[in-house]
């Protein structure tokens, strides 16, 4: 599948202007790209979060598509309700059948943590929708608290670095693999800087025969503590350091996507973000060694899965 920039540039922008997202925020960039990548008109459900509060403040809206926000944890179920209503309205002859794509945008808090059950249920029931996790590795909307997507050692306002505890003590949840274990037709990880990889995945997700999930790394300059102009650079460093592998799982088959992955030590990426400054000030820090070891281990496991899939 090839997406041509020339074609995409002719499409109307479905995400308008005038939103209140921070300068340097990756979310608006990714959302615009995702909406452009869709072939069908979308109906969007939005979880409570940065994107929602910054784009839907009454009486204004940034969205040029129908959009439903209901609460923090339940956007997968909300879109499930839309999917169900669609089917019944068509069946009753109250609405014409037409191609539509049901899309969810939710943060990592809404996806990994508070909304995990709702998402899992909606995937199991097989509603046809594309779930986009805009993953900035923390609860940025409420003021940079840790989530289960936050990296080991990272400073957040609920895992501050102190003498007794150097930032977040736990390794993050591997949500993408957990979603893949639902055996849905399309699962992927993408990152904000690699627009072509992201948009190709969105198009594949849209065409999947069932629920689809894309976990998109969207670096947060406020929460990760870097300069707003560095967003895409940081995103790229995360991928190059192997901290955010780009891959897809199509009908259970794992495959790496995109070039320049895991070409650098994790230190290169950690140094770009001041949320790690308490550990990066010492190159021999034990947490950094632990992160590197775990990244190596997970990378090898992922490669093994890809090789197994290729051999099948």
């Amino acid at each position: 599948m090839t997406l041509k920039l020339r074609d995409l540039s002719l499409k109307p922008d479905l995400f308008g202007t005038g939103h209140g997202l921070c300068a340097g925020c990756a979310e608006s960039v990714s959302v615009r790209q995702i909406l452009s990548a869709l072939e069908n008109p979308p109906v969007v459900a939005l979880a409570t979060g940065c994107l929602e509060v910054s784009t839907t403040r009454f009486p204004d809206t940034t969205w040029k598509v129908p959009l439903i926000h209901s609460a923090f944890e339940n956007s997968a179920t909300t879109i499930g309700g839309v999917d169900a209503a669609y089917k019944a309205l068509v069946r009753k002859g109250r609405m014409e059948d037409r191609p539509l794509t049901f899309v969810v945008f939710a943060g990592d808090g809404a996806t990994y943590d508070i909304g995990f059950q709702w998402l899992s249920g909606a995937l199991e029931r097989g509603h046809k929708f594309v779930y986009i996790c805009l993953n900035n590795e923390g609860y940025m909307n409420t003021g940079i608290q840790r989530s289960s997507a936050t990296l080991l050692g990272a400073w957040t306002t609920t895992t501050p670095s102190g003498d007794a505890r150097p930032g977040k003590p736990e390794w993050h949840k591997d949500m993408t693999k957990i979603i893949a274990a639902h055996n849905i037709p399309y699962v992927a990880q993408a990152a904000a800087h690699n627009w072509k990889d992201l948009m190709t995945k969105v198009r594949k997700a849209e065409q999947a025969d069932g629920p689809a999930f894309i976990n998109v790394l969207t670096p947060c300059d406020r929460g990760w503590r870097f300069e707003p102009e560095k967003t895409m650079e940081v995103s790229q460093l995360m991928v190059e350091a192997g901290l955010w592998p780009l891959y897809e799982v199509v009908d259970g088959k794992y495959k790496m996507t995109g070039a320049r992955q895991k070409k650098r030590p994790v230190m290169d990426a950690l140094l770009s973000q001041k949320r790690f400054s308490h550990i990066t000030k010492n190159a021999d820090d034990a947490t950094i060694a632990a992160i590197q070891a775990k990244v190596d281990e997970e990378w090898d496991a992922l490669q093994a899965l890809c090789e197994m899939s290729a051999a099948e």
């Binding site: 109906v43 459900a45 439903i68 209901s70 609460a71 944890e73 339940n74 179920t77 909300t78 879109i79 499930g80 309700g81 839309v82 169900a84 209503a85 669609y86 309205l89 059950q117 709702w118 899992s120 249920g121 199991e124």
Partner: peptide, 16 residues
Amino acid sequence: ESEHAAMSACVGATAA
């Protein structure tokens, strides 16, 4: 999978 989801689905369906 829960009553919260029941009402969430109803919200989505009715808004739809």
